[in-house]
């Protein structure tokens, strides 16, 4: 499968995850979100950027429970809870946000 953005085709797996992490860019993230009917706000970007940093440090996309706890520590309890994160990413916070972040599906994802 592939997704075309600004005239360039990006290879993805059958669930829409980017095949080559290094090809990621902001426009691509926006386009992936648009396909899901989601407009990326500042709150979305906070999570997406967090995931990219986490992957950069640990070479792993965190499971939803791990993400929730880590967001809570970084951005405060009002954001580090399932309700807030599921409102932003109804298809599953780790799963959906990782996709827009250009990461593989999370390790231990639900």
């Amino acid at each position: 499968m592939s997704l075309e953005v600004n005239g360039k085709a990006y290879e993805t797996d059958e669930e829409g995850y980017l095949a080559n992490l290094s090809e990621w860019n902001l426009d691509l993230a926006e386009a992936m979100a648009k396909e899901d009917g989601c407009d990326l706000t500042e709150n979305h970007w906070e999570v997406v950027n967090f995931l990219r940093e986490y992957y950069d440090e640990y070479q792993i996309a965190p499971a939803v429970r791990v993400l929730t706890k880590a967001i809570g520590k970084r951005l405060g309890k009002d954001k580090g809870n399932s309700k807030y994160l599921y409102e932003l990413f109804p298809y599953g916070p780790a799963k959906q946000a990782c996709k827009y972040a250009g990461l593989p599906k999370p390790t231990g994802c639900v």
């Binding site: 440090e57 640990y58 070479q59 792993i60 791990v66 231990g108």
Partner: peptide
Amino acid sequence: TKNFSATYGALGDY
């Protein structure tokens, strides 16, 4: 290859 040794740092988070 991928440097997965970085991933041991995530054990505590899990």
